[in-house]
Structures are given as C-alpha cells and as structure tokens.
Simulated scan of single mutants.
Amino acid sequence: MDAFLFRLKAAQFDLIEACCGIERAAEKCGYGKTTVGRWKDRNDPTVMPIPAVVALEADCGRAFVTAVMAAANGRRITDPEDEKAKQAGILSAHADLMQRMASLAGDVATAYADGVVSPTEAHIIDRGASEAERSLSDFRNSIAVVKAAGGERGGLKIVGEGD
C-alpha cells in the first residue's frame, strides 16, 4: 500500500470509531457489518464509497476521510466551528496543542526505544499525529479569530500589580 492509502485507511478507522464502532456505522450508512469491518481493517485495501463517507462524517460531525482526500490534492478543509475557537482562546488552544505534541513525542520515543518501529507503533504514532494536527488547526483558528477581532486581551494578571 502507498502512503495515501495508509492515511486513508487510518482516517476510515478513526471515522468508524467516531461513529461508535462497526455495528452503529453499518446502521448509519446502510452497508453490512462485514463490509464496514473491511473498511476499518487497516490491512484490507477496501475503501469506503463516497455516500458512506458523507453519511458517517455527517453522523459524527468530523471530516476524517474528506480531510485526507483534500490533503492528497494539496487542499485543506476548514472547520466551521469558529465560535468554539472564540470560546477557547489562544492560551487554551495552545495548551491543548502542547499537550498533544508532548504525547506524540512520547509515542515516537517509545516506538524507537528498541530501534524498530512496528506497524502497530506506526498506527499509534499516526493517531497521535492526527490528534496533534486537529489541535494545531484549532490553535490556528483561535489565532484567526483574534486577528479578525483586532486583538485579544489576556485574562491573566500579574499578582501584586495594582491590587
């Protein structure tokens, strides 16, 4: 399998998980459990048809597969949840990003500890990278909201100054 297919299969796995597993995903998209199981199996080259992708992404509210297809064509999808970014603010989004990056670094270090990265370890790293990528996107959305608003006043105060 080429790199794109590995990313696509990882996205299918994540999508099915986000839809609460094989049985529920099968109900939501109208395909059999065996078929959905093949889509979720990272070692099976079967890919989801577009109507199933659309149905499942609508169900869970996340564009796992669509994002991979867009990236393969040099594009990026945007998240319409700018309101979420406004509420989180830059500091919160940055803290989440740093936590996910630290976790990813730990996964990579663990995988390389014995000098060999197994396919299972590569899947763990890929999942961490996917979470970090989403967190980075949220962070960038927070920055964009601040730019559009003309800046943001931090809620932090220095203790002892003016109190």
Rank of each mutant, 00 (worst) to 15 (best):
A26L: 14
I16M: 08
A132T: 15
V53Y: 02
K157R: 10
E152L: 03
L97H: 10
G61E: 03
R24S: 14
A109G: 09
K84A: 13
A55H: 00
R62Q: 03
E17P: 03
M48H: 01
G106N: 11
C20I: 14
V146A: 11
T35I: 15
A71R: 08
L56C: 10
A88Y: 05
A85W: 05
D114R: 09
E161K: 04
L5E: 15
S103Y: 02
K157S: 06
G128T: 15
G154Q: 09
A105F: 04
A122T: 14
I143R: 03
Q12W: 09
A58W: 01
P51M: 09
A105N: 06
A88N: 10
H94K: 11
H123E: 15
T66Q: 07
M48I: 05
Q12F: 11
S103K: 14
D126C: 07
H94C: 08
K40M: 15
V159P: 06
S92F: 08
D14N: 08
I50R: 07
M101E: 12
G106W: 07
N43D: 14
R42S: 03
N43T: 06
I124G: 09
D138H: 00
A122G: 12
G32F: 05
S130Q: 08
A149W: 02
D41L: 08
D107R: 15
G89L: 04
I90S: 08
A26N: 14
M98A: 14
G106A: 06
E23W: 09
A95Y: 01
A63D: 07
E131R: 06
T120V: 15
T46Q: 03
K33D: 08
A102C: 10
A122L: 13
S135P: 09
K40F: 05
L5W: 10
A95I: 06
P45N: 04
I22K: 02
R42Q: 13
A111K: 04
N43P: 11
A149N: 04
S92G: 13
P51H: 10
C60D: 04
Q99A: 15
G151N: 06
P51N: 03
R134I: 02
F64D: 01
A149T: 00
V47E: 11
P51D: 10
G160V: 07
L5Q: 10
G162L: 12
Q87D: 04
A18M: 11
D107W: 10
A71H: 10
V65W: 00
D59A: 10
K33Q: 13
E152Q: 07
D82P: 08
F139G: 00
G162S: 04
Y112F: 13
T35K: 11
F139E: 04
T120D: 12
V146L: 01
E83Q: 13
A3Y: 00
V47H: 02
A102H: 03
G162Y: 02
A70Y: 05
L136H: 02
E121T: 08
D96Y: 07
